[in-house]
Design a protein around this nucleic acid. Structure first.
Length: 509
RNA sequence: GCUCCAUUCGUCUAACGGUUAGGACAGCAGAUUCUCAUUCUGCAAAUACUGGUUCGAUUCCUGUAUGGAGUACCA
């Protein structure tokens, strides 16, 4: 009997959610939806020191912007609520104690200062300190101390932690859905802290295993940085007696810097001019980070790009809607090696979505950009213009440069453009064209084009000659989109007025 | 240092023993066009290196190199 697919995205609210984190959430989401299972959001806030105000809200907002919907989580609730680990703190001690009683874990009373000293000392000797089988019976642990002394220390309020007692010389055999079989000798592993009395909170390892078990998680899909602790997690499931319901694991490759070495970081974005976070972020201390949303990326483009960074459909399709991603996604087409992030391709994706959007869909964004420059434009006009310029735009912010001249008649004419396009005969041609246009009532681009073009062709006029002069007269520069489209937008009256002004101002040659 | 993981054009990737090693971004060139774009066509560009296994290796196994991650009372 196949068990129900239940996956979770379990971020820590220590700052804004990195795009790598969004990708992890996305893959979990796609996997869950593909299987008709559940997507759970669990907040892992067991580190009271690193908690950042607003980070949780940011995570939720980011996922919503991406179109990733949550079945069970802090806002949605669900059968395993609460979904914030800080609100589940009382359940973890019991499990930690269970491991102590079964001999799989022990108390350790070392203070952070003592451990630091030990580390420094070992380092001075050119060695690395590891809290493992070689030291656990020599330090202040329940393995070395008498039961009475342990009780006494606890009773008098000494701070303690519970550490996992890593077996010695055992080979753990593991399976990863992406990487295949992995085996590790436990002698190379240390005794990780599972629970801290100082704040009555578990560490990631304990909370993670306990919650995944309690929440009946079937698949753990997470970043590659967790691969080294996979043996510990296997051993924890075994120590609890949960091996038969242990989830399957899949470790995703990391996102790397566009150039140079290492994983993608906020600094790369600042340096190379691209966002690393989905949304604009302001930290409680006032630091800010740019976001894809505010930089003008469509969520669909961002998601599409992220989906293809480390996964491929096995076909040559590159543009995917969320539904298409869900239908096509599978973990066995996720790559194994780290993927360098490519800002250029991300822009290309955005341009693709820009082009396929209709003028109506773009109208609001257009109106907003114009408003930011102090230009008011009706929603109908916005839709009309957006439709004409969208193939030239990558971001909504490009709209301004692509069409501002429609609202602002030229007061002067670009010297280079005039020199290049207002040539011998231009004045007479434009003069005649003005009369042609003046006689037209239906100013739709289709109609004006039909009438003007047939006149141009019949009279053997060179297309480039007249159209470019026309452009200089209307726009004042050699930019813009289709001449007849631009005339349609500004209307007959404005067209004629601009032509009159040009004819009066430009050389009468 | 130690442990684990990875390695195909500059980048993202396809090819799960037999292909002229395919596609996309970026680059370059050309076509189309009323500017600029879009679009279309073409060019250039890769199996890290070693040994094996095999009739045959990008593909399987050694080793090396390189890269990545982990090595916290952080996740």
């Amino acid at each position: 009997m196949e068990r129900r697919v239940r996956v979770r995205f379990a971020p820590s609210p220590t700052g804004p959610l990195h795009m790598g984190g969004v990708r992890t959430a996305l893959y979990n989401y796609l996997f869950a939806r593909r299987a008709g299972g559940d997507f759970i959001l669990r907040i892992e806030d067991t580190d009271s020191n690193r908690f950042v105000e607003g980070a949780e809200r940011y995570i939720l907002d980011s996922l919503r912007w991406c179109g990733i919907t949550i079945d069970e989580g802090v806002d949605e609730g669900g059968p395993h609520a609460p979904y914030r680990q800080s609100e589940r703190k009382e359940i973890y001690l019991k499990y930690a104690m269970q491991l102590v009683e079964s001999g799989n874990a022990y108390y350790a009373f070392d203070t952070p200062e003592e451990l630091n000293a030990l580390r420094a000392q070992m380092e001075a000797e050119g060695k690395t300190f590891a809290y493992d089988h070689s030291v656990r019976e020599k330090l202040a642990t329940s393995l070395a101390l008498s039961p009475e002394e342990v009780q006494e220390r606890i009773a008098r309020g000494d701070v303690w932690v519970i550490r996992f007692k890593m077996p010695v010389g055992e080979v753990v055999e593991m399976d990863d859905l992406i990487r295949g079989h992995i085996s590790v000798n436990t002698s190379t592993l240390d005794d990780k802290v599972l629970y801290k009395s100082a704040d009555s909170l578990p560490t990631y390892h304990l909370a993670n295993i306990v919650d995944d078990h309690l929440m009946e998680i079937s698949h753990v899909i997470r970043g590659e940085e967790w691969l080294p602790s996979l043996p510990l997690h296997y051993l924890l499931y075994r120590a609890f007696g949960w091996s038969d319901t242990q989830p399957e694991f899949a470790h995703l490759p990391l996102l790397l810097k566009p150039t140079g070495q290492g994983k993608l970081s906020k600094r790369d974005g600042d340096k190379m001019g691209f966002p690393v976070f989905p949304l604009f972020w302001t930290s409680p201390t006032g630091e800010t980070a740019r976001g894809y949303r505010e930089d003008g990326y469509f969520p669909e483009a961002f998601v599409n790009m992220l989906a293809l960074l480390g996964w491929n459909p096995g076909t040559e399709q590159e543009i995917f809607s969320m539904d298409e991603l869900i239908a096509a996604f599978s973990l066995d087409r996720v790559g194994k090696s780290g993927a360098r992030f490519n800002p250029d391709k991300t822009k290309w994706f955005n341009a693709q979505y820009m082009h396929t959007r209709t003028g109506e869909q773009l109208a609001e964004a257009y109106q907003k950009v114009m408003a930011e420059h102090g230009i008011e434009c009706s929603i109908e006009k916005s839709a009309q213009i957006a439709e004409f310029i969208k193939t030239r735009a990558t971001f909504p912010a490009d709209f301004w440069d692509l069409s501002s001249f429609l609202f602002i008649a030229p007061t002067e004419y670009d010297e280079k453009a005039v020199k290049k396009y207002w040539k011998e005969g231009s004045h007479a041609l434009i003069s005649t064209l003005r009369e042609k246009l003046a006689a037209i009532d239906d100013f739709s681009n289709k109609n004006t084009e039909e009438i003007c073009h047939s006149w141009i062709v019949e009279n053997n006029i060179h297309m480039g000659h007249i159209m470019n002069a026309f452009r200089v007269a209307i726009v004042g520069q050699s930019k813009g989109f289709g001449m007849y489209e631009m005339c349609e937008v500004i209307g007959k009256e404005e067209t004629l007025s601009r032509l009159d002004k040009a004819l009066a101002t430009l050389p009468q040659i």
